[in-house]
């Protein structure tokens, strides 16, 4: 099995779906000749032509809205938002339209679109090339939201998203693109939407997270093992619908839980995860539910000390994990 980069896994997932189903097409800014500003769609136009790998005008609401129209006709569009920071002009199309089309038509119409958007900082992108907008869309019924961390999941979830009969937001982490590599089968497999995944078995503390911060969690867990702290790690993979069963099972295992994400703390996915745990497992906990998240500021600055202060890293994660273990 080949070891490939996360970005290549996403590209491979799109390539396979474009080959499998002629109704699948990719649209977005710079996705064609340039192959995307991160090279995520590189080479696809050569294989599939400019109609199925379509460079669009610079207008996010049209990218989403045109994709929605095509999906209602029966196509399976993959719309790319160049940075998730720029998907807000499309928010009305995503929340008022895509999310509600099945519901408002009483199951007559459906909207099987995938909207891919790179999230996360650490690339000196400043306020508007670094955001994690999950919480804006999280809690909107009708949407599914995935955020892979492993290369294997990036391909499998992308393929599952394309085949899903409902709208799926695919939040890929731009820092993961080249940093995360892993074994990815070149055959046709999917990772089911709505299923979390245990990355590491452990007995002392449980860490629940998704996307890029899981790299720090895995590194910290390895180091803490040498201190005698055993960490259980759950990768949510899908943010909506949350895999409640997997969340409860992973917390029950240790009785101590830390939830980590780069999106800011207030109103984030972690708040919902902790509420689920509190509602159902309060008396099985041996410590308060803890969260480690981005600070509640509008977005991260471009200056290096500021960006470093904002972002999570192995040391911050390790300290929080140790604190929980020692509680």
């Amino acid at each position: 099995m080949a070891v490939i980069e996360y970005i290549e896994a996403i590209r491979l997932g799109m390539k396979e779906e474009l080959e499998r189903d002629e109704d699948v097409f990719v649209l977005g800014e710079d996705v064609g000749v340039k192959g995307g500003v991160f090279t995520t769609t590189k080479g696809l136009i050569d294989q599939f032509g400019e109609q199925r790998v379509m460079d669009t005008p610079l207008a996010e609401s049209a990218i989403a809205g045109v994709a929605i129209g095509a999906a209602m006709y029966g196509m399976k569009p993959i719309a790319e938002m160049q940075y998730s920071d720029f998907m807000f002009p499309a928010t009305n199309q995503i929340i008022s339209e895509a999310a509600k089309i099945r519901y408002r038509s009483n199951n007559d119409w459906s909207c099987p679109i995938v909207i891919r958007a790179p999230i996360g900082g650490g690339v000196f992108g400043g306020l508007y090339h670094s955001q994690c907008p999950e919480s804006v869309f999280f809690g909107t019924p009708g949407l599914k939201i995935v955020a892979p961390y492993r290369a294997y999941d990036a391909k499998g979830l992308l393929k599952a998203a394309v085949r899903d009969p409902d709208p799926v937001l695919f939040f890929e982490n731009k820092k993961c693109y080249k940093l995360i590599t892993g074994e990815v089968p070149d055959d046709d497999y999917i990772v089911p939407i709505g299923k979390a995944n245990v990355l590491r078995e452990g007995d002392d503390i449980t860490v629940i997270s998704y996307s890029m911060p899981l790299l720090f969690v895995e590194q910290a867990a390895q180091e803490l093992a040498q201190e005698g702290i055993s960490t259980h790690i759950l990768d949510l993979r899908t943010l909506q619908p949350l895999d409640q069963e997997a969340i409860l099972e992973s917390v029950r295992k240790t009785g101590k839980v830390l939830i980590i994400h780069e999106d800011n703390k207030t109103g984030g996915v972690g708040a919902e995860v902790s509420a689920i745990i509190a509602e159902q497992l309060l008396y099985e906990l041996d410590a308060p539910i803890m969260r480690l998240c981005g600070p509640d500021v509008p977005a991260m600055p471009i200056n290096p000390p500021g960006e470093k202060f904002f972002l999570l890293n192995k040391e911050k994660v390790k300290e929080a994990m140790r604190n929980l273990a020692l509680y």
């Binding site: 097409f25 109609q51 199925r52 609401s61 049209a62 989403a64 809205g65 045109v66 994709a67 929605i68 129209g69 095509a70 999906a71 209602m72 006709y73 029966g74 196509m75 569009p77 009305n92 199309q93 008022s96 339209e97 509600k100 089309i101 408002r104 038509s105 007559d108 119409w109």
Partner: peptide
Amino acid sequence: SKRLRIVTGSSPVTTQVPHAVGIALAAKM
């Protein structure tokens, strides 16, 4: 009404315009 090819609409105005364009794009494809 899918049967009549009347595409479901909402209250925030003009969101249907890009949808019409998407349907025309799909028909062309």
